[in-house]
């Protein structure tokens, strides 16, 4: 709280608003984890925090430190880049893992895998189903 006193009003106001908006969005996303019914609905909820929530907080931080130190402080962009790159990857991996687990248990709520076309060569980067099933074959 020592340095906040040096901040002029035109910078303090947007910083406060952005912080509150970002924290509110993160809380909304986490509340969605509690309120939504199934896993596939819940996996949508944290995206609120990881897209707009964290960008609002990062913008607030950039504005605050740039005005406070009277130079451009941009290193928050690193976290933004990291979030943009990593969030889709983790969510897709998690969704694929959940889909695979549900299918192997014979759950009715998930759609079945598409029927394999006869004698089609397995392209690299194919569906997780084919990759995993070849792994089963190797182990047994």
């Amino acid at each position: 709280m020592t340095n906040a006193a040096d901040l002029p009003a035109w910078a303090a106001l947007p910083t406060a608003l952005l912080l509150l908006l970002g924290a509110g969005l993160a809380l909304t996303g986490s509340l969605g984890l509690l309120r939504l019914g199934s896993f596939y609905e819940r996996i949508h909820a944290p995206t609120l925090g990881t897209t707009m929530g964290i960008s609002c907080v990062l913008l607030a931080s950039m504005l605050f430190f740039s005005v406070l130190q009277t130079r451009l402080v941009l290193h928050e962009l690193l976290i933004a880049v990291l979030m943009v790159v990593t969030t889709p990857v983790t969510l897709m991996l998690l969704a694929r893992a959940a889909l695979y687990r549900d299918r192997s248990e014979g759950c009715d709520e998930v759609p079945p895998p598409p029927p394999p076309l006869p004698s089609s060569p397995d392209l690299p980067g194919g569906s997780p189903q084919t990759q995993v099933s070849t792994k089963v074959f190797e182990r047994t």
Partner: peptide, 30 residues
Amino acid sequence: RAQDRVLGLDTLYVNATMLLLTFGIRTGST
């Protein structure tokens, strides 16, 4: 189920990142 726990952990990490950033603004330290 296990995937719900992993989703909770991921959200926890993101929220912790944001909390640390607000601590940075509070103390004025980078």
